[in-house]
Write a protein that binds this DNA or RNA. Sequence first.
DNA 1: GATGAATGAGCTTTCATTCAT
DNA 2: AATGAATGAAAGCTCATTCAT
Lengths: 192, 192, 192, 192
Amino acid sequence: MTIKADRRRTILDAALRCFLDKGYAATSMADIRARSGASTGSIYHFFAGKSALAEALLDEAVAGWGAASATAQDPDAPAEHAIKASVRGLCLWGLAHPERSRFLEELRNHASSSPEFAAVRSKLENGQEAGAARYALWVEKGEVRELPWPVAYALMLGPVYTFLRVGRPLPQADADDIAGLFAEAAWHAVRS
Amino acid sequence: MTIKADRRRTILDAALRCFLDKGYAATSMADIRARSGASTGSIYHFFAGKSALAEALLDEAVAGWGAASATAQDPDAPAEHAIKASVRGLCLWGLAHPERSRFLEELRNHASSSPEFAAVRSKLENGQEAGAARYALWVEKGEVRELPWPVAYALMLGPVYTFLRVGRPLPQADADDIAGLFAEAAWHAVRS
Amino acid sequence: MTIKADRRRTILDAALRCFLDKGYAATSMADIRARSGASTGSIYHFFAGKSALAEALLDEAVAGWGAASATAQDPDAPAEHAIKASVRGLCLWGLAHPERSRFLEELRNHASSSPEFAAVRSKLENGQEAGAARYALWVEKGEVRELPWPVAYALMLGPVYTFLRVGRPLPQADADDIAGLFAEAAWHAVRS
Amino acid sequence: MTIKADRRRTILDAALRCFLDKGYAATSMADIRARSGASTGSIYHFFAGKSALAEALLDEAVAGWGAASATAQDPDAPAEHAIKASVRGLCLWGLAHPERSRFLEELRNHASSSPEFAAVRSKLENGQEAGAARYALWVEKGEVRELPWPVAYALMLGPVYTFLRVGRPLPQADADDIAGLFAEAAWHAVRS
DNA sequence: GATGAATGAGCTTTCATTCAT
DNA sequence: AATGAATGAAAGCTCATTCAT
């Protein structure tokens, strides 16, 4: 009759719109049901529960953002380049997708307290460990200051996170400038 | 009969302990009732609702933290001193009261989305405006870089916010070192 | 200090305004407290409870309306005159005080079901008995049809009650006309 | 397993019995839950809330009563016949179902003040408009007196409404007599 | 794959009333 | 005569999840 409706996709999209509109906590399964047009049973057929929906969306978002800052992932890249690319990538992505960025932030908050987000939490912790390992290498090479990883991490990415939480939408040109500014600042904060 | 029980105080303390233990959202009025020993009616006699409790606690916390970093408030202080004092103050307070600090963060998140926290939101916005005004003065005097306030704010305080969210408790000596480190970094990030 | 404030009076007035504005059921003691400026304890000092307030107001209203249609009470008046005066009186009073009239109606509804209004109910029943007795006399004299009192009562006053429930405010001249019309109809409905 | 239990029906029946027994206002959702055997969630699955239950029952009642006085609805019927049939129908139905009749009255009262009954209110108002239109036709044909519709309505149906509110159950034979008496009176009150 | 009825603990809040001071 | 803190049962309603079909 219609183009094959990918139920899973439909549900995921509806959930994302709900989460972006009202926040994760304030979104009820009924909201998602109404917006997706799927039945309760259908939703639970594809996803184990509300948190599983959020997790699936989180994976997608991270994948998208990761792809966007691919260069930053190259393990042999020099520290300066990797750090600036990473900060730029986060900043530009966050400014381009302010709702998504806020959604990630909300999830991270929930993850740190709620047991149902154990999976999310461990993913984030893995990311931290990987970051710490890379930073340790740069320290060995003398490219960056010797700092505990949480401190280095906060110095590099903290400003962007805070800015994204506070800032309003910007013209694209300004977005590039500001991303550059934060990238530069991040590098200056940790370089030897 | 008993030592004079200041019910209002008792309730507020119980609410704080609950919020710190389980987070604002996960705390129910029943939790507060059980912990305070007050009756439901008593709680509502003193506070209009759950969010009013949070607001009252927020005011207290802000007052406490404000008092602790009084020097930073002096309008005639040079930028370097004021900024470093402010960042240090936030960092030391946050490390000394990690739960409280997380509670504030949670409140801020709620405030940005939920209508019942309009009062909290407007308080926070007032704080931003005051900060912006001060920064503008320093720009005029040539002490700091000319930056949009949200950017400057993020550069200065973002690292501390992020660190407090991630970091674990630290020995006091380290706390001082780290607070100094962040204060220094904040100043370098925005000085002319 | 101020002119002697008759607390009882103040409370009663506040309660009336509340009941008229929001209805008896929807008015809380807190509303009355706020509007009167009296304390909870003060209200309970003068009145046994919410229903006692309503009762006191009912008595006043009935007294006022009774005074207005005094002629109708004369036991020796001929049926036609008494009936018309009574119907006119009710109609004019109801049109002049639509809120009060609706308040009476609400009270009567509550009274017929709620045990706390036993006193009101018995007052109303006394009124019915008195009416029945008078009507019986008129039947004996051959002035009116022999009808069970509830039927006669409904024929005479039912139209006015219904009209007051439905109708909108009217210009005074029309009020007189309509009162006359209902009075005439009442008499025609029961005369021999 | 069991006879097919139509939950919706079961709930509706239980609600009706509760409303008839204790009145709408005094009935709690817990009462309905206990009486129906359904769970809270089940009730809210089928009905949006307490007022939605009342509305559904109102629709049923109106449908039943409307069917019973079908003749009265015929738009070409002469005024005398239509009016008498309508009044008779209301009176007989009310005497046969005194609880239901009182329930309707209570609902009408609530509807006139409470916003949650907007739907009920508009239904009732539609009924009034239809009545007014019909009456206007009869006026044109010279069958009835020229009266504002609210007045005509009150003259015709007011006595029955009042009688139903006051009266006690009657033997069937008397019910017919009294219905006839009110029908006759209604016609006399408005005929040319 | 898909449906939607069913669950029931849990939620925040309201309120008339009491009583020590 | 006056106060207002204290009570606690009861209310209407939400919601993630389960499961028979």
